[in-house]
Structures are given as structure tokens and as C-alpha cells.
């Protein structure tokens, strides 16, 4: 079953992503997407032992989206997904959803939130699952057998689903800043009592930067401002609609190429080109405005040389074939334009 994990995750993220786009928490909306995607078919073809293992896998995967740190909307989507998967599984003997003891309080909190917000359908689905006895009340969310993974794939849960606003205050709050400045002042006092006054100016024995606390504070503030601006911007962009903001020819063209590419290479291209383009713009303006965020160094797991070569050769040869094909035909008519096109295509493919 291990080799289905990636695909199952991708499918779950796809349906939840579409649910998120709809900006709704109604089950009706979810069911529509479910039917559009023919999601029930996911169980087809997995019979007997394979089927049992597969149901276990997909329920465990979907369960992850029902818990924090995801936003409320995604968690509602996760609940609907669990319900739908539970109802649609094709096994004669239904598999149950495993809910761990440590997560139960979170589930209860979720139910309370849903009741308070009068999301009747979400509450109904949750209680319905309880009524159907769809849960196994367990110690841990998955079966554990001390399997240490060799190449640990960091669980890259979809960033978009996260409840983003809550992260920073958790790490940096006023208590921490106070603590930090207290420690700092205490340390300087101690130091000044140990050393004779002239040596006190020696900065090499400083514990932290002299003005770290205010600096940290201002950085956090800047970050908030930047985030707010970005949010309002994306909201504006949404309001004005996709078409008007991308009036320029270049972005239209980029989108066109992106759509062609996404068709050609399947699901490899994630965000549409226009989005990426706009994001870059926002980042640029924000970095001008002040807060200097150096990207944290993250290790990128690259595929093997063989895989990369295979990929690259495949793409290039394909593009090359197409390109030569068009040039041969259209060389007689408009040479310059086509060359430019090929060039841009080739660049894009890289």
C-alpha cells in the first residue's frame, strides 16, 4: 500500500483544494465536487485484501485533514471527506475511522465551534458518524510497528490549507520578549559587575545583539503589515476578477503557454503561471518596504541523476520535435516570430 500513499494524498488535496476555492462549508457544495470528480471510483478495482488495506490507508490520510493545524474550512472538508469515504467504501465489511484519544478533545472542540457557528450540516455529519459507529476509539491514529523510514519524506501538507495567522504569535509573544530583555539586562548587570568599566564596551562577550528585542519586535510588526497588505491585494485581485488585472499581453501569453504546458505534462505544473507571476511581484514590493526575510535554507530532495536526465531529455526532445515541425512549415512565412516563440517555449520548459 505504500506506493499509493502519494497518489491518495494528491487526490485528497485536490478535492479539498477545490472545496476551498468554493469558499463554503456546506455539504451540498462538497457533494457536488465529489460527484464532479467521481470520487467514489477511488475504491473501484481494489478487491479483497488490497481493498481492505486501501480503505485503511485512505481513511488514515483523510483523518489528517480533520485535525489542526488546518483551517476550519479544510477541517470541515476533511470531515465530509471522511464521511463520504466511509459511506462509499465497497468492502463487505466496513473499515472504521481511527480516532486517537489525544485528538478527541480537538474533535469535541471542533463540534462546539460548529454548533456555535450554526453549521448544522457539519454537526449533523459528525453526529451521524457517531451514530453509525464509524469510529474506532484508539490509542494512536495509525498502527505502529516500529518501522523507521529510511528516507523520511517530510509531511508536506498543503500550505494553502493551513491556518496561517496563528503561527507567529505562538512563537513570539510579549512574554517571550519580556523574558528575553530581562535575561539580557540581568546578564549585562552581571557582566558589568565582573569586569572593570572600560572592558564593558567590548561587544565580543555580549550574550545577544545589543538591541535584539526592539529589532525582533519591529520585524514581527513589519511582517504583519506585509501580510495584511498581501491579503488585501489578493482580495482585490479576486474582486476584480482574473481577466482585468492581467490586461497586459505578456501575462496572457504566459497563461496560455502555462495551460499548454500543463496539458502536455499532466499535473506537473501546480499553480498556474499567472499566479506565480503575481506572487513574485508582491514579494518584490514587500522586500522593498523593509522587512528582510532571508529564506530559511531547506534541503531539496532532488531525484536521482538518472531520473532527472530521463525527464529532461524527454521534455527537450518533445519540444524540439514540435518546434522543428513548426519551423519547417512556417519558415517560409514568418521566421522571426517563430524563433522567438521557440525560444520562450524552451525557456519555459526548463
Amino acid at each position: 500500500m505504500e506506493n499509493y500513499r502519494e497518489q491518495v494524498k494528491a487526490d485528497c488535496e485536490q478535492i479539498l483544494g477545490r472545496f476551498q476555492e468554493k469558499d463554503s462549508v456546506r455539504f451540498q457544495v462538497f457533494a457536488t465536487i465529489w460527484r464532479e470528480m467521481n470520487f467514489s471510483h477511488i475504491f473501484y478495482g481494489a478487491v479483497k485484501r488490497e481493498g481492505r488495506a486501501f480503505v485503511r490507508l485512505i481513511l488514515d490520510t483523510a483523518y489528517g485533514y480533520f485535525l489542526p493545524p488546518f483551517s476550519f474550512q479544510i477541517r470541515v472538508g476533511g470531515l465530509y471527506l471522511l464521511y463520504s469515504l466511509y459511506q462509499c467504501q465497497t468492502n463487505a465489511r466496513r473499515k472504521q475511522i481511527r480516532v486517537a484519544l489525544k485528538d478527541w478533545d480537538v474533535v469535541k472542540k471542533f463540534e462546539k465551534d460548529a454548533v456555535d457557528a450554526q453549521h448544522v450540516d457539519a454537526v449533523y455529519i459528525l453526529r451521524r458518524l457517531m451514530f453509525l459507529k464509524a469510529f474506532h476509539f484508539t490509542a494512536m491514529p495509525t498502527l505502529l510497528d516500529y518501522q523507521k523510514r529510511r528516507n523520511v519524506v517530510k509531511s508536506t501538507f498543503c500550505e494553502n490549507f493551513m491556518d496561517r495567522s496563528s503561527h507567529l504569535p505562538e512563537i513570539i509573544n510579549t512574554e517571550l520578549l519580556e523574558e528575553l530583555s530581562n535575561v539580557h539586562t540581568m546578564y549585562t548587570e552581571l557582566k558589568s559587575s565582573v569586569f572593570p568599566p572600560p572592558q564593558q564596551t567590548d561587544s565580543s562577550v555580549d550574550l545577544i545583539h545589543r538591541d535584539m528585542v526592539p529589532q525582533l519586535l519591529s520585524t514581527v510588526k513589519d511582517f504583519y503589515k506585509w501580510r495584511q497588505r498581501k491579503d488585501t491585494r489578493t482580495a482585490e485581485a479576486k474582486d476584480s476578477g482574473e481577466g482585468t488585472s492581467s490586461g497586459q499581453e505578456s501575462s496572457k501569453r504566459a497563461r496560455l503557454i502555462a495551460s499548454i504546458k500543463s496539458k502536455a505534462y499532466g499535473e506537473a505544473a501546480e499553480a498556474s503561471k499567472s499566479r506565480r507571476h503575481r506572487q513574485v511581484e508582491v514579494n518584490f514590493s514587500s522586500s522593498e518596504a523593509g522587512p528582510s526575510f532571508k529564506p530559511v535554507y531547506t534541503r531539496i530532495n532532488r531525484p536521482s541523476l538518472k531520473a532527472r536526465t530521463k525527464d529532461n531529455v524527454h521534455i527537450i526532445s518533445k519540444v524540439w520535435k514540435d518546434a522543428t515541425g513548426t519551423t519547417n512549415v512556417s519558415r517560409l512565412t514568418s521566421l522571426e516570430l517563430d524563433r522567438a516563440e521557440i525560444k520562450s517555449l524552451r525557456e519555459n520548459s526548463k
Binding site: 499509493y4 497518489q7 470528480m37 473501484y44 478495482g45 478487491v47 465497497t90
Partner: peptide, 16 residues
């Protein structure tokens, strides 16, 4: 339900 439906779009089904 015992066979994968023709031309599937879900990546799990493609894999299967």
C-alpha cells in the same frame, strides 16, 4: 466495483 473504471482521472486510479 471490481474493475478500475475506464479513463480514470484520479491519480490513485491511474496508479492502480
Amino acid at each position: 466495483t471490481d474493475v478500475v473504471p475506464p479513463d480514470p482521472r484520479l491519480s490513485t486510479l491511474i496508479q492502480r
